[in-house]
């Protein structure tokens, strides 16, 4: 049985998303490695659970964190989507949401937080500073992109991104979670990613 290419999100059309080719690449890889009937059904159930229950660990260092608070507040209400719970303990979280500039002093802390998280774990890089260093790229103390340190699943650009952009990015993460295999790692991320240098293409870049 083939994995369908659609990774459906309620009330969003497939075509409305960008970077669909990246997702299709993942699906192709899954099919090539052979997706069995039972496994696929189980996987689909598991992926449904995972993608609808994304508990965040927030590493908010600057402005983006305030926009994330707005996301949690009444107007944008991220509880609607299954992102309601944010755990402050890395052991219990699913996704590390890095918001704001990461400096040389914070970088080892962030690495440690990532290492402390239980599998499966994902990383979302929010804001220009996190993705590339942003306006502070020339500074002596700013990490130019956290993907030098940890693998990133989704990049949400902006300075800071609007709450709508947050949603778009988190939905892209959900889509990515929906085409995964329970046995065999999280998209083979650990194999693909080489620390320091090689950039893994995220959903929304």
């Amino acid at each position: 049985m083939e994995v369908k290419k659609m990774a459906p999100i309620r009330s969003m059309k497939y075509e409305e998303f960008k970077n669909n080719d990246y997702l299709e690449g993942l699906v192709r890889q899954l099919n090539d490695e052979g997706a069995g009937v039972i496994l696929t059904t189980v996987d689909r159930l598991i992926n449904w659970g995972r993608s609808n229950s994304v508990w965040g660990l927030l590493l908010g260092t600057s402005c983006c964190a305030i926009e994330f608070m707005a996301l949690g507040a009444a107007r944008y209400d991220m509880a609607r989507f299954g992102f309601e719970v944010t755990r402050n303990s890395p052991r219990q979280a699913d996704v590390l949401v890095v918001m704001g500039t990461i400096t040389y002093r914070t970088a080892p802390v962030m690495k440690r937080l990532y290492d402390q998280m239980a599998e499966p774990k994902y990383v979302v890089a929010v804001g220009g500073c996190t993705i590339s260093g942003g306006p502070f790229i020339k500074s002596y103390n700013v990490v130019n992109g956290i993907d030098q340190i940890i693998p990133v699943d989704v990049y949400i650009p902006g300075c800071p991104p609007r709450p709508e952009a947050f949603y778009y990015g988190l939905m892209q993460l959900q889509r990515k979670m929906k085409v995964e295999r329970f046995l065999g790692g999280v998209n083979g991320k650990d194999l693909q990613h080489e620390p320091n240098g090689k950039k893994e293409k995220g959903g929304d870049e």
Binding site: T61, T103, F136
Partner: peptide, 26 residues
Amino acid sequence: LGYIHRGIEKMNESLTYPQTLGMTDR
């Protein structure tokens, strides 16, 4: 302190005055 020390003051020394304005918002 310093977990979000971005070195704005040093960066400003190589930016023109209109450019430095961008840093204050952050």
